[in-house]
Design a protein around this nucleic acid. Sequence first.
RNA 1: GGGGCGUUAGCUCAGCGGUAGAGCGCUGUCCUCACACGGCAGAUGUCGCUGGUUCGAUUCCAGCACGCCCCACCA
Length: 946
Amino acid sequence: MIETGYTPQSVEGRWYQAWLEAEAFRAEDTSSRPPFCIVIPPPNVTGSLHMGHALNSTLQDILVRWKRMEGSNTLWMPGTDHAGIATQNVVERVLAEKGKNREELGREKFVEEAKEWSKRYEKRILGQLKKLGASCDWDRTRFTFDEGLSKAVRQAFVRLYEDHLIYRGERLVNWCPRCDTALSDIEVQHEEVDGRLWHVRYVFEDKPDEALIVATTRPETILGDTAVAVHPEDERYQGAIGRKVLVPVVNRKIPVIADPFVSMEFGTGALKITPGHDFNDHEIGVRHELPIIKIFTSKGQLSPEFLVDNEGKPLESERAEKYLGEDHYKVRKLILKDLEELRLSAGEEPHRHSVGHCYRCQTAVEPFLTPQWFVATKQLAEPAIRAVEEGRTKIVPETWTKTYFEWMRNIKDWCISRQIWWGHQIPAWYCLDCNKGKWSRKGKAVDAQRKAVTETADGQYIFFQDAKAIVSLEDPTECPKCEAKNLVRDPDVLDTWFSSSLWPFSTLGWPEDTSALKTFYPTSVLVTAFDILFFWVARMMMMGLKFMGEVPFREVYIHALVRDPEGQKMSKSRGNVIDPVEIIDKQGADAFRFTLSSIAAQGRDIRISGERIEGYRHFCNKIWNAARFCLSHLGENPPDREAALLAVRKAKKGDSDSPVRPADHWILSCLHRTTRTVREALESYRFNEASSVLYQFMWHQFCDWYLEETKHRLADKKEGEHVRALLAEVLETSLRLLHPFMPFMTEELWQRLPKPPGGPSLLALAPYPEVDERFIDEEAERPMGLLIEAITGVRNIFGEMDIHPRKKFRLSAQLRGELGELGREVLEKEKEFFVAATNAEAFSYLEPGQAHPPVSATDTTSWGDFIVDLKGLLDFGAERERISKKLAAARKDLEAVQRRLDSPQFEERAPAEVVQETRARRDTLVELMARLEGNLARVTEWEKES
RNA sequence: GGGGCGUUAGCUCAGCGGUAGAGCGCUGUCCUCACACGGCAGAUGUCGCUGGUUCGAUUCCAGCACGCCCCACCA
């Protein structure tokens, strides 16, 4: 026997295994069925399933399960991302716990260690997706760092290089001193912080008692200044331009230059120029051919190289020497103190400004001058822009297209090299022989002495931008130019997002020309949150078009970010993390999925609360119990649903022999209307609407009314079979409708239904319900509507007057008009239900004009009066209040309607239909009010008489 | 500086030119044989403000206020 309450724990485990065994999620590489394909946004291997994954995966799974039931050759391609910096950080932390670090482990061993980790954690995150019900084709699972995908990366890199779309150059890039690597521009998160603006005196070389006052937020960079700039039209500084000032502490002689970039309004109007450590300064430096002095090491410590003058000759400064090797925050402190002592500080003020932080470790990033690899994006972006303009890829909701265009049209070259170990090592080699005598860079002074390939103290090589790289598909064994075997591979690895950008085709077998590619590329839709629109979506567009000549996906559905109930980002430090795995264990995957679907429509972020999930757990229980009710009546043999449906369609008015009742027409109309809405909603990614109509239908139409209506019919010999068939029809169809949203419970219940032989063995493989328009019929729904109106009205009398619902009473109906005639038919056909639902002891009709039984309560509906005779036990005051309330509501409505009708141009300009409706409504309200007033008067009269 | 989003019932949010909706919460009542994870009934909104378009605006347009986000990054 089926349990009285739904316990997800005892159901969910079973079915996932059954689906796997039946290979229900398998997609065919070649098939005559229409393809449908989604590639999963690969979660980071090190990650644990969080709310974002849960939402993202649920939405994908709903689409995929729906399409699979529709009969498409459906592929949901799973996999994980090796997540370069993030994983390296985690693995390093683990090593640190064991008292080790990556340097002592060495590159090869470290990478092996990280691979181990990835393997272990991949299982965890994929296992969690399975718990959620994700119906991926697991046999195809890929990893951005697996052999095949590494091949794709290599191919892509080489081809882009050969097409001059990848180049190497020494640029000022964003650098994370903690991760010790370059970052791309979008990996830097800018945040406003409260800082200070220090004013510092730069004395003139020729007149030490005069000084330029410069404002800076980063006094430590003073050590790298190679000029001071003022605006060319700034009257205050006309005499200064061309003269020299001394950099405080180190006394480097630097020129005062004029550049229009400088704002005369900000600070003192004099800007110190540190071309080695600031993006704007760097540009000015290039414009004026200033020397570039790097004062920090890659780890943010003061480097010994900074003690040079503008000609590159060594400088001496005792004060500055003591900063050597110090972290730049420490240097700031020290230099501020020294400025004070040297009487070179000229005040400070609070200053709010934005500072870039590493998106992986939140450390403040530094602009850092290093040789790096870049993708030239302008050319790649162009077709990606066009594809969206032309609608070859559609972004939903559309508002994001603007953001996409905005970014794509202003795209900057993409720094793809990272100075870490975990990732695809760049396939570039340098011939030590060829590059031996070569000098690097045109640069001035400081840099002029540098070799193109420089060996560092610890035996590593630095390859500057003039070093000639050998880039090839196969690892070269000798230099193609000089045939020397003295080759060294570039130590850098590629940005993780480089491999992710190939995901939609690399996972399908590219660069091989596979049948999977032919079948599934372009994929159908990409489902993702907006936070990786630039990181991932935009880049997949560029790479897909470049290598496949076609967009990677026809549609992009962008959903919101998940927040906690207070709208805060969920984070461990805030302690507000709702763990999806915990929810699944406690509330069940189905309730959780339904919750996510129901809130999916919200704008930029969605909040999730425990109460909401609990509400949908109750919904699961409701369905469970409705099914329990049906099952208890259904027995072993499948009823003849086709016959019952035919009977409903063929039912004729006045055929008293027919088992068909108004409720049957009504529920089938509702069912098919719901089906239609769900399908339309899914087509346009309106998940919340689909959930909402399913909820309304199951609970408030099927359970509240139809199940109740069938109760008295099931025992009937003549009707029982018909009703059972319809219950089976509606329940089974509902389960299929609901399956993509709550796969586990629906499968469990579906399996328990008596099934005709020869059908699918799993609900997951059953067809999705079709809309049969013949059943959607407002006319056929109306009779049940009248009945519901009457029942609710009568119940209202009891509810409002605080009469115990078990109180015996006689009920009579006084019908009127055309609707009354229709209503009378319904009442006749649904008499037992009407009586049971209102709890009346006896029911009879009053002829028109016949007096109401004295001292009774009346509910006036659109089609007649329903009179509750409590044999005089009426609370006059309560009844008057009840009627007055309705009267007031009707009056308010009437006023609004009348106002509209009174406005002079309404009849002239409004559509005839609207005018007619409005008039009809006025008439109805007028009549209703008259009757209510009549009821009121009657009560008053009775009160007087009593 | 540029761009975007939001402002609707106590809370969280749907709706978006023609009678204001849901869930949760709340009030009353009922352990009626599927479900108390339930039934029944009920209360609650100048749909942020000001103008405009329209016969009609919560819905479209403009401005304003408040809140939020993204991008650019004047030291």
